[in-house]
Design a protein around this nucleic acid. Sequence first.
DNA 1: ACTGTTGGTCAACGGCTGTTGGCCAACGTC
DNA 2: GACGTTGGCCAACAGCCGTTGACCAACAGT
Lengths: 190, 190
Amino acid sequence: MTAIEPRPRRSDATKTAILAAARERFAAEGYERATIRAIAADAGIDPAMVMRYYGSKDRLFAAAAEFDLRLPDVTAMPHEEIGTRIVGHFLSRWEEDETLMALLRAAVSNEAARERLQAIFTDQVAPVMAPLAPDPAQAGERAGLLATQMLGLALCRYVLGLPPIVHMSRADVVAWLAPTVQRYLAGDRT
Amino acid sequence: MTAIEPRPRRSDATKTAILAAARERFAAEGYERATIRAIAADAGIDPAMVMRYYGSKDRLFAAAAEFDLRLPDVTAMPHEEIGTRIVGHFLSRWEEDETLMALLRAAVSNEAARERLQAIFTDQVAPVMAPLAPDPAQAGERAGLLATQMLGLALCRYVLGLPPIVHMSRADVVAWLAPTVQRYLAGDRT
DNA sequence: ACTGTTGGTCAACGGCTGTTGGCCAACGTC
DNA sequence: GACGTTGGCCAACAGCCGTTGACCAACAGT
């Protein structure tokens, strides 16, 4: 059952170019420093077009910040590999799609972005991780702990550029963080 | 050996009022959304005074972002309590001084703030934690890992307001994170 | 060929920003 | 009590921002 697509319009290319430029600027500079004028210049069109197609800067961001973490099914993997796989998956998602960077950079000072990031946690992270918790009452807490470690890693590695973290290899990051994540999601508290 | 203090001036009260208002605004709104006009209004004076005393917005931030983590001497505490004590100390520092919040919020989009946060890591965190590392070559890496977990916690608990993390008691946070920090600073990699 | 629709540019408005310089009043010293 | 110094306010400038509306060109359907 494929959705009925409206006939493609000539402006579709422009729209996606705007979206790509917007993601890049929001990711690199955050919400307020990324200007509509700069985004339009990157996309090679007039700033007025951005307003015509997306209405306002807020709505442009909302459109650019659509994101799917594509978390794997954790119930279908060897129990002791959960930490390793989850950390690896987050690293991959973070490096292949700048939308996450845009969300993090903007969420710190923009209310809508903050809510969007919270929604990703509530809708995509928490439900997927819930089955792993020994005690269902702890499920939310455990997912939250995962978020602290993964967002903290992204903050230090991709945003702040903390030298020891930036220079670590992917394998080292996974080796260090996997046991932490494993414990947060499915292990004992102490 | 007390430093020779210049005679106190009438304007000292105003200067510190500006600094307090600046910290509050930078902490609550980040660097670009915190305006000099708003800071001056909070301090009950004219925006021009901010420029007179601090020269520019950049230098005002630099003055407001002076910060000492006051990390305890980790070599003088029971080895197995290190994780607990460090996590507790970070929680306290974060809650009693809004400077840290100002630094984190600003560092995401402001270069000078990013460098300041890096400097705090390099000058205050890394050297203090170094003696705990079994292998001195790993010292920087281990301190960096500590930073990912503590900054990630602060981000989720104080900036993003992730519900499960916000609702956790201080004791729960310490209980969950202490083993992680203990392992990062002084434990085995796996 | 005509005409309505779509994709796009241009110039401008109003508002907010950091920053500046001139002016005034209160103070401290002789 | 005169006078330099200090603390403070006010008004304005120049620049950038999001946003708007008028205008033009290319296309599609008849």
